[in-house]
C-alpha cells in the first residue's frame, strides 16, 4: 500500500461523576499536558486527536461532558451517535464507581448497540506509593475488572497526572472498533477507499480488523 490509510473518524464520549478526571484524561491524550485543579466543565467540551494503531489512523472526535448530575439531561445528545465511550471513575471515591455503573447501564440501554465502552479508574497516582496498611484506594482492581467482565467492557486504571495508561485506553478502544463501523464526515469517501484496499493490495488488513472485532 503506497498511501497511508485515511483517518477514520470515531465519535467518543466521556462520562462519569464530577471531578473524576474526564477533562484531564482528554487533556493528557490530546495535548500530553496536565493541569492541577482543572476547571469544571460546563455543558460539554469538544476535542479531536489522531491516534495510529498499526496501519490504521483513527481520528477521535471527543465529547467531554460535564460530570455534575444536573447536566445529565444533556448527555444523551453526546452519546447517542457515539461509537465509543469512556466511563471514568475515581479509584479513591466509591461513589464515583457506583455512578460509573449507572452510566454503563444507561449506555447499554440507550446508546447504539455496538458501542465500545472502556471503564477507566483514574487517579492511579494517588495510590501508587500506598502501603498495604494505609491506602487511599477505595475501589479495588478486582471490583473494576469484575464490572468490566460482567458488562463486556475494556478496563484500565490510569493516571492523567502521570500519564500512566492513558494512551492505552485510546489504543485499546481503537483496536476494538471494527473498521467498517467507524463513521464521520468523510465516511463515503473512506468506504470507497477501504473497499479497494481490502480487495486487492492489503490482504492483511481485513483479517486483523476482523480478528479485533471478534475479540
Amino acid at each position: 500500500m503506497s498511501f497511508p490509510n485515511p483517518a477514520t473518524s470515531v465519535k467518543l464520549v466521556l462520562l462519569g461523576e464530577a471531578a473524576v478526571g474526564k477533562s484531564s484524561l482528554v487533556l493528557r491524550f490530546v495535548s500530553n499536558d496536565f493541569q492541577e485543579n482543572k476547571e469544571p466543565t460546563i455543558g460539554a467540551a469538544f476535542l479531536t486527536q489522531k491516534c495510529t494503531i498499526g496501519e490504521r489512523t483513527i481520528k477521535y472526535e471527543i465529547w467531554d461532558t460535564a460530570g455534575q448530575e444536573r447536566f445529565a439531561s444533556l448527555a444523551p445528545m453526546y452519546y447517542r451517535n457515539a461509537q465509543a465511550a469512556i466511563v471514568v471513575y475515581d479509584i479513591t471515591k466509591p461513589a464515583s464507581f457506583i455512578k460509573a455503573r449507572h452510566w454503563v447501564k444507561e449506555l447499554h440501554e440507550q446508546a447504539s448497540k455496538d458501542i465500545t465502552i472502556a471503564l477507566v479508574g483514574n487517579k492511579y497516582d494517588l495510590v501508587e506509593d500506598d502501603t498495604e496498611e494505609e491506602s487511599l484506594r477505595k475501589v479495588s482492581v478486582e471490583e473494576g475488572k469484575g464490572l468490566a467482565e460482567e458488562e463486556g467492557l475494556l478496563f484500565f486504571e490510569t493516571s492523567a497526572k502521570t500519564s500512566y495508561n492513558v494512551n492505552d485506553v485510546f489504543i485499546g478502544i481503537g483496536s476494538k472498533i471494527p473498521e467498517a463501523a467507524s463513521a464521520g464526515p468523510n465516511q463515503i469517501h473512506q468506504t470507497n477507499n477501504d473497499g479497494r484496499i481490502d480487495l486487492t493490495s492489503d490482504p492483511n488488513n481485513r483479517p486483523r480488523a476482523a480478528g479485533d472485532c471478534a475479540c
Binding site: I42, G43, A44, F46, L74, M77
Partner: peptide
C-alpha cells in the same frame, strides 16, 4: 446544535 456551545454562555 446550539446546546453544544451556547450552554456555557447562558449558564
Amino acid at each position: 446544535k446550539s446546546s453544544m456551545y451556547a450552554t456555557q454562555w447562558f449558564l
